[in-house]
């Protein structure tokens, strides 16, 4: 499941477009959260329609 809250571009203060999700595998114990037993998590990718800046976050 991904997050419904829009990300806001830190530069332009406008809503970013959530255009992609990717399953990411990690061996980093700091990144893996409870319930992510195989070390995978879903990452969301967002782009600012004004400046083109990108951002990502773990899906909820």
């Amino acid at each position: 499941m991904t997050t419904d809250d829009k990300m806001i571009c830190p530069m332009c203060r406008v809503e970013m477009n959530h255009h992609s999700d990717k399953l990411v595998y990690t061996t980093d114990s700091q990144t893996v959260r409870m319930g992510e037993t195989l070390g995978e998590y879903l990452e969301e990718f967002h782009t600012c329609p004004k400046c083109g800046g990108v951002a990502s976050r773990h899906a909820a």
């Binding site: 477009n17 959530h18 255009h19 992609s20 782009t47 083109g52 990108v54």
Partner: peptide, 10 residues
């Protein structure tokens, strides 16, 4: 792809 990244939601 710029159009897609900036305007088209997944």
């Amino acid at each position: 792809l710029r159009q897609g990244r900036e305007q088209i939601p997944r």
